[in-house]
Design a protein around this nucleic acid. Structure first.
Lengths: 196, 196
DNA sequence: GGTAAGCTTGGACTCGAAGTCTAAACTCAA
DNA sequence: TTGAGTTTAGACTTCGAGTCCAAGCTTACC
């Protein structure tokens, strides 16, 4: 992939709509060319193929997630309070980039196999969140968790699945509703008294 | 899709390995034929195409999930206790059918677009679990939840993502570890005292 | 045993989309 | 002005999905 001229990046975002609606394989390179107003030959000049375009879009979204999540994780307050803000921030990115996020979920398996993407998911969510969980154990605001990375993965799944379901609803659920529901779920749990 | 002769079903399971490893589109019909020892022409005699084979495999797994989940949900005890067993049962299916489950996660977007699969996901997990959450509100073992279906979707995401990550690890995490971690997460929450 | 209906299969075929290639036009900095 | 890199149309190759067919096979029923 060659370095892109700046005017090309925003045009490419239109491709996310197609990928989100039809999936990568049902989307023809001609369609991408039509939707982005970038001719096919030019697309092949910059990218090695469709998959690299998808990867580029994912990197963009995951970069935004990483910025939002690390900022929320680094803020003031207990680990518990920060975790709540991390969840909200992640859901907000979903709401801000709905089609690219859906495309990421849709072609999840493919994304997981792209090494750059796996690295970005780790850096943007799993890493900071599992770190935050460890901090919570230290500052006393969270339980001490034997497998922080497992919990971080579970949170990632909960947040993305909720984001997917909720933005697919009519009317779509609000970020505040989702954030409240998820935060209560993972912070306070479902049982009535909080004890076993 | 024609009704399959019984001897063909087990052979087809070998296709799940390919789909899980490479995804549907990178898997050639010739490869499926080679892996299952069913000639290509015969595959096309029974299925309209690759996607229908994938759909068939998903239905099988989701049928098992549905049986396991509804049985766990219908058992004795409070809603909270049953929810814990539901989570364990679902994770156990992941462990029992690793490749088919991974394929399902892998081609998630495609699966979501297949109407039969969307129905099966609803019937096998979202429906029973959101019902169980409502019951928990009534029997007093769970908090009263404003959006039970949203929580059910979040649980689904948490369980499947955990199952994915954990089976991809070396060594893979045990079902018991995953079930304990997830159950504590969603039942008791992460904060130390269980209160707000 | 005959026979008809449907199953099984090899192999040739069509079709469509991915990706390659080329050459001509264009931009822009030195 | 010139040369390096960019942009593009369009022709081309390649590959795999799905179709088709004809020959052989199995099996149930007479």
């Amino acid at each position: 992939m060659r370095p892109l001229p700046p005017h090309m990046e925003p045009k490419l975002m239109a491709a996310a709509d197609l990928f989100a609606r039809d999936g990568l394989d049902a989307t023809k390179m001609e369609d991408v060319a039509a939707a982005t107003a970038i001719p096919k030959a030019t697309l092949y000049y910059y990218f090695t193929g469709k998959e690299e375009i998808l990867s580029f879009l994912f990197q963009k979204v995951l970069g935004v997630v990483q910025a939002a999540v690390t900022q929320a994780a680094a803020g003031p307050g207990t680990a518990a309070a920060r975790l709540r803000r991390v969840i909200t921030a992640h859901l907000q990115v979903f709401a801000d980039y709905p089609t690219a996020s859906r495309a990421l979920q849709f072609d999840l398996g493919r994304a997981a196999r792209l090494p750059d993407i796996a690295t970005s998911v780790e850096a943007s969510f799993i890493g900071p969140v599992s770190q935050l969980i460890r901090e919570g154990g230290r500052d006393g605001s969270l339980r001490v968790i034997p497998h922080p990375r497992m919990v971080a993965a579970a949170l990632l799944g909960a947040v993305t699945t909720t984001g997917m379901h909720a933005t697919g609803m009519e009317p779509p659920a609000s970020v505040a509703d989702m954030a409240d529901t998820l935060s209560q779920l993972v912070l306070e749990g479902l049982v009535t008294n909080g004890g076993t």
